[in-house]
Nucleic acid binder design. Structure first.
Lengths: 200, 200
DNA sequence: GCCTTCGGTCAACACTCGTAGAATGAAACG
DNA sequence: CGTTTCATTCTACGAGTGTTGACCGAAGGC
């Protein structure tokens, strides 16, 4: 369709460039498909169709469905958390608010796939571990790792309840109200809570 | 194998009784298979094999895979929550402690299947809604439903992180320590928190 | 201009799944 | 006894899956 100039040695769409673009397009489509369907229900043909190519090409470029999934996971970003415990807590809450307000993020894709497929689980849990490490480094407590894991689990549960289970009170709630109710929880976990706490 | 007495009108294993037993055995096997595999990865053949019968018999008795799944969900129990907010909070924490210490419960099966299959989701979310209603009735606040949903989401996130994601700090943590860290959260959600709270 | 390289498509294989229907054989009943 | 009922199994179909290899056509080096 386009007026290509075949005589040019490095044409605007050289072979290598074309390949790079197609591969990126497949990866984007795979991210979307894996998210909305989960690992098992996601099909190579669906990814190929969404990318506008043939299923065989997906296999040709990525080798296998598992390898394609691993590439998707590796490309998923991890939100940054830093500063004082209080600042970190607010960053976590802000990130959660984003996830509540907008369409579900990549982390949801990880989760759904993880719950679906045992082989996908090991690849995906690495992504969550990265997020927990981010949180843990901002918590000045001996059990920082456990606290970070709990915080991560809470945000995960909230996000899952809203976006995946849906039939929830949470699905229709105002994100800000959820955050407001959750704020003392996250802060009490990020910073050491009232030392005159309940009896053990 | 057993010395049957065919002359007896109602033999120790009459036809109706035999059918009842087989059906119950299939339902038990289905519960187990649906739990450990999720809806999609669970196969009629696996259920049949676990029950020691043929796949066709499962279809003959339950009509379809979805119908079998619905029967499994309907049979799943919901933990009771009642009393004052503080008492309810402790009951919730105790239930969570049980789920952390022992093997994953039926609720996990619901969740996994729910996340896997959209048709299974509607059947399973009813079970979670029942649990949230239990919690909400014990919370004396205008936004009791939302608070209950958040509490349910938190316990869900914790359970998922420990039993399904596994590669967590949570997977190896002492359940009591998790409960201790979580106690102020649940209590602050069940009862109204400090009225001199943070600025809106 | 010729020949290689390679992005991309097509058709097919082997497998598993849910499901349907015929076949079997023992129990219930006259 | 014969006949009917019914729990149970066997066999098979059709659809969908990941994966493969042959094939096509244009880009790129000589």
């Amino acid at each position: 369709m386009t007026t290509s100039r075949p005589t040019s040695p490095t044409s605007p769409t050289s072979r290598a460039e074309q390949r790079r673009r197609t591969e990126a397009r497949i990866l984007d489509a795979a991210t979307q498909v894996f998210f909305s369907a989960g690992y098992d229900r996601a099909t190579i043909r669906a990814v190929a169709s969404a990318a506008g190519v043939d299923a065989g090409l997906v296999m040709h470029y990525f080798g296998s469905k598992q390898e394609l999934y691993r590439r998707v996971i590796d490309a998923a970003p991890v939100p940054e958390v830093s500063g004082t415990p209080a600042e970190a807590a607010e960053q976590i809450l802000a990130g959660l608010a984003d996830r509540l307000a907008s369409a579900p993020a990549a982390s949801l894709a990880l989760l759904r796939s993880m719950l679906t497929n045992p082989e996908a689980a090991s690849a995906a849990s690495a992504g969550i571990a990265r997020y927990e490490a981010q949180i843990a480094q901002a918590i000045p407590a001996a059990d920082a790792d456990l606290r970070a894991a709990i915080i991560s689990a809470i945000t995960l549960g909230i996000t899952v309840s809203r976006h995946l289970i849906k039939s929830d009170e949470l699905a229709t709630a105002d994100p800000e109200q959820v955050i407001r109710l959750l704020r003392p929880c996250v802060h009490s976990l990020a910073a050491r809570p009232d030392p005159s706490g309940p009896p053990g």
